[in-house]
Design a protein around this nucleic acid. Structure first.
Length: 935
RNA sequence: GGGCCCGUAGCUCAGUUGGUUAGAGCGUUCGCCUGAUAAGCGAGAGGUCGGUGGUUCGACUCCACCCGGGCCCA
């Protein structure tokens, strides 16, 4: 038979089947950069005056990016790119958080010069050493900004990469310091005590990251507090004692309260004529430890009822009141916890609730001061513990002493055990000027939370947060410009001094606090407000890094001309107590308003088993490696496929699946492009009312898909929008429409209306799909865009989001086709049977179909599209609508109709492979004769 | 231990105000095609909706408890 392949209009395109993304994406990035895409993208919409601002939460600059960073920035990129297509100007200023412990820690540990200096534990207190450390920290932070910036660019994040913000920039530090001055001026900042981990050997405060837990042997002491005012009648007015247990006897010196769990049952037991109060659940174990043989319970009471009972301090003339705390457990001890707010975090917090005094008479070296009284002054904590036991014995408050081995905090540097010691700190009063109340009002009434349940999380995080500890005794941060009066020791935080510092920071940076003499910061004639002293020295505390980033929206308003408030903050679910919170506190304190209108929260990135990614588990997925091996678009497609408001999983298998889906999308796009190779949209488009029915049906479907995708994108549910497009492409385009139109596209005359009609539909569908896909798989969409015929913007991102086209809507047509598609399913089943059971054909094109129905409505529909049915079913020859149940080898029942299948009559056309009873001497059917101009 | 959240086929996701035999795509198995070809098409298998108890005529959907996982706090 003659080969007619050359006469067919087969697909042709230079858009490659294989993405080869690792190689091609960097080339495209270069192209975008050279064309200054970001600027064009923003400026095009700036003319409209409508802005949509995502304020980037700054990642910490101490390492390469991880998958969580990638997820975060890719989702932000989806939103920015979508909003831009919708006509908003979307300037996006990426940022970095530079100050803080992790970098300082790394530098002090790993830099040989610094770690040598710090062998002297007192060195960190020396401002000159701190200055040295800061220089190293700055360098370290700079290094990682550069690395991360390149990595984010590689992922295709469209942003103002040359104009990013970073918290150690002099302009940033200066503006932040001004904001701090405002807050001080408004009366939010006070100086108070706060217990923190302290190393008596190094004489320094330790951050959480510097604490190592190690096994330690400690005393295990049972002691007594005598009831003084039995307000609730717990002891029925008789003499009695609270039985208390501790592993740090020296802290009893600072005891001010006893904590009971409100839900536990407590009992008063009588032993040898004495009455002791303890938790019922621990009675047996304590009786054993204390050697009680004959004891009887004389009273039982709920913990909650004990609140307010007053006890005597075991050896000082001081009260110790009964309070309630949930953290009291039945794990060990007596169910009564001795509270010393100066020596424990929980003690401190519960103490604040009850307004208890903070007693902490321990100096920097771990020795008791005069304040502890003559019994203890000068002793270190170990000596004091021995002394406490001795005194307890003398006063008949001692019950039992043993030893216990437990996990106890130690210094990471010198390995010695730590103590909790109250230190002076700067606090932000969260209730000053109704800050908390206003913040809660913003959360509940003026901010949209996505997903909605996060509103509760945030509400709770603010409602129950303690005052904000603003200061850190560290080197690497923005200095708090406080000064100490040399005469009276008063520490002064004066807005004028702070503003002076801000001015100097603007010229240099916050290192200036070290390099300038204190006089440079003081106004003319500055005097100590307490004693009138005129000589001062600088204090060297730095601001908590959460203040750095918390101030960012207000800083960027000035440094980057960013609108305020911003539209969206979008971060991971760990930020309710972090950035969302600190940003809200600063903004409400400063402006009385939240800095964000919408807060979108994404989940955590986990491995395929749902475990967090850890180096030790070997389950870490490196996003940059994914980009380098599979392509950034595969990673972006993964994000587009997941519901990011929940925890998201990624690993080898999931990645393989995403890569498969990517290939399917790419190939579908490629096939469409291939069929448009000879299509000139300005000349060849067929008006919609002249198009073939199935082509119009697909445009109707495009409208439906577009409407859904738009709605889902508006709700930030990108994965739902994506699956809509994906299923449209896979099932309806690849599986149905593109398959059935091949005959028309390949074998009909090049300029035939039928062929041009199909091309028109394909062109319009592809064009709009590419725009809608461009926020997600940006590299691929833009690559395909280059190959799309017709007038178009230079980059797909500069187009407008496709608007609804009412003329494409045809509900009646759609209803008809949805019915025909049901019939099609039955036809396919019948053909499958004809192949397998009857073995009368191998290829669908060899089939001939008859349909019988008594459903008049269906019959009408079938007759209406009679001429198209063979195409829709991909069979040869006219489909017969018959008046009797078909008498054919294969008959299959559908819902209200019967389908019959037999082998087609006649012969196979050598060109189009359809069977016909009218094949000429060249092997051609009538249609092909027309196409070749033979008739 | 506390607060908040999550748990539908191997994987990623849908499941409207509780209402008939729980859906899709991918993957898998089988088959077809070789004019989308390191492609394309068809068919099949696969789920006691984490578990238990309850409310209801009826629950994947509401309630309680439990199990597993995550984040934050301790």
């Amino acid at each position: 038979m003659k080969d007619y392949k050359e006469t067919l209009n087969l697909p042709r395109t230079r858009f490659p089947m294989r993405g080869n993304l690792p190689k091609r994406e960097p080339q495209r990035l270069k192209k975008w950069q050279e064309a200054d895409l970001y600027r064009k993208w923003v400026e095009k919409r700036e003319k409209t005056g409508k802005y949509f601002i995502i304020h980037d939460g700054p990642p910490y600059s101490n390492d390469a990016i991880h998958l969580g960073h990638a997820l975060n920035k890719i989702v932000k990129d989806f939103i920015n790119r979508y909003k831009a297509l919708k006509g908003y100007a979307t300037p996006f200023i990426p940022g970095w958080d530079n100050h803080g412990m992790p970098i300082e820690h790394r530098v002090t540990k790993q830099d040989p010069e610094i770690s040598k200096i710090l062998e002297d534990p007192h060195a960190l207190k020396d401002p000159r050493i701190r200055e040295k450390i800061r220089i190293k920290c700055r360098r370290e932070a700079e290094k990682w900004i550069k690395v991360q910036r390149e990595q984010f660019i590689r992922l295709g994040i469209l942003a103002d990469w040359d104009n990013y913000y970073y918290t150690m920039a002099s302009s940033y530090e200066s503006k932040e310091t001004e904001i701090f001055a405002d807050i001080v001026e408004k009366g939010f900042v006070y100086r108070g005590f706060m217990p923190i981990h302290w190393c008596p050997h190094c004489q320094t405060a330790l951050a959480m990251a510097e604490v190592e837990y190690k096994t330690k042997e400690s005393p295990s002491l049972w002691f007594l507090l005598k009831v003084k005012d039995d307000k609730k009648g717990i002891f029925d007015g008789k003499e009695g004692y609270a039985l208390v247990w501790t592993t740090t006897p020296w802290t009893i010196i600072s005891n001010v309260a006893l904590a009971f769990n409100p839900t536990f049952d407590y009992v008063v037991v009588e032993v040898d004529g004495n009455r002791y109060l303890l938790a019922e659940g621990l009675l047996e174990s304590n009786a054993k430890t204390l050697g009680w043989e004959n004891y009887s319970v004389v009273k039982k009471v709920k913990g909650a009822e004990i609140e307010g009972t007053v006890f005597e301090h075991p050896f000082f003339e001081r009260d110790s009141v009964a309070i309630l705390a949930d953290f009291v457990t039945l794990e060990d001890g007596t169910g009564i916890v001795h509270i010393a707010p100066g020596h424990g975090k929980e003690d401190f917090e519960v103490g604040r609730e009850y307004g208890l005094p903070i007693i902490s008479p321990v100096d920097e070296t771990g020795h008791f001061t005069e304040e502890a009284g003559e019994m203890f002054a000068g002793l270190d904590t170990n000596q004091a513990s021995d002394k406490v036991v001795q005194v307890l014995k003398e006063r008949n408050r001692f019950m039992h002493l043993g030893t216990i081995t437990h996990e106890y905090p130690h210094c990471w540097r010198c390995k010695s055990p730590l103590i909790f010691r109250a230190t002076e700190q700067w606090f932000l009063n969260v209730d000053h000027n109704d800050l908390r109340k206003k913040a809660l009002d913003e959360i509940d009434n003026n901010v949209v939370w996505i997903p909605p349940t996060t509103q509760v999380t945030m509400h709770n995080a603010v409602e129950f947060r303690p005052d904000w500890v603003l200061s850190r005794h560290r080197a690497w941060g923005v200095n708090i410009p406080a000064v100490r009066c040399k005469n009276c020791g008063e520490i002064i935080l004066d807005p004028i001094v702070i503003r002076n510092a801000a001015k100097i920071f603007a010229e240099e940076n916050s290192d200036a606090w070290y390099t300038h003499p204190v006089e440079d910061f003081l106004p003319e004639g500055f005097k100590c407000p307490k004693c009138g002293g005129e000589e001062f020295e600088k204090e060297y505390d730095v601001l908590d890094v959460w203040f750095d980033s918390g101030a960012s929206s207000l800083v960027l308003e000035q440094t980057h001309n960013m609108p305020w408030p911003t539209d969206i903050y979008l971060e991971g679910l760990d930020q309710f107590r972090g950035w969302y919170n600190s940003a809200l506190m600063v903004a409400v304190a400063e402006r009385g308003k939240a800095p964000y209108r919408i807060v979108v929260t994404h989940g955590w990135t986990l491995d395929e088993e749902g475990r967090p990614m850890h180096k030790s588990l070997g389950n870490v997925v490196d996003p940059v490696r994914v980009a380098d091996v599979n392509g950034a678009d595969v990673l972006r497609l993964w994000v587009a496929s997941t519901n990011f408001t929940q925890d998201v999983r990624l690993g080898e298998h999931i990645l393989a699946q995403v890569a498969d889906n990517y290939r399917k999308i790419r190939n579908t796009i490629r096939f469409m492009l291939g069929n448009l190779s000879d299509f000139d949209p300005s000349n060849d488009q067929v008006p919609i009312n002249e198009m073939m029915p199935v082509d119009r049906f697909m445009l109707h479907r495009l409208e439906e898909v577009k409407e859904q995708v738009t709605a889902f994108n508006e709700a930030y549910e990108f994965h739902k929008g994506f699956y809509n497009m994906f299923k449209f492409m896979v099932i309806e385009l690849s599986g149905f429409y593109l398959d059935i139109t091949k005959d028309r596209l390949y074998t009909w005359g090049k300029n035939s209306k039928g062929r041009r009609s199909a091309q028109t539909a394909i062109f319009q569908i592809l064009r709009e799909l590419l725009i809608m896909l461009s926020p997600l798989i940006s590299f691929t969409a833009d690559e395909a865009w280059e190959h799309l015929p017709g007038d178009k913007e230079e980059f797909v991102f500069l187009e407008d989001w496709p608007a609804p086209v009412d003329e494409r809507r045809d509900e009646e047509l759609a209803a008809d086709f949805n019915r025909l598609l049901q019939v099609r399913d039955t036809v396919l089943v019948a053909i499958e049977k004809a192949r397998k059971e009857a073995n009368i054909l191998s290829d669908r094109l060899e089939a001939r179909v008859e349909i019988f129905t008594e459903d008049q409505k269906l019959k009408q529909v079938l007759q209406k599209y009679r001429d198209q049915l063979y195409e829709i079913f991909i069979v040869s020859q006219q489909v017969d609508i018959v008046d009797l149940r078909p008498d054919l080898p294969i008959v299959v029942e559908g819902e209200g109709y019967v389908v019959g299948v037999d082998h087609a009559r006649g012969q196979k056309c050598a060109r189009c492979w359809l069977w016909s009873e009218d094949i000429d001497e060249d092997g051609l059917c009538p249609k092909c004769r027309v196409a070749l101009g033979k008739e």
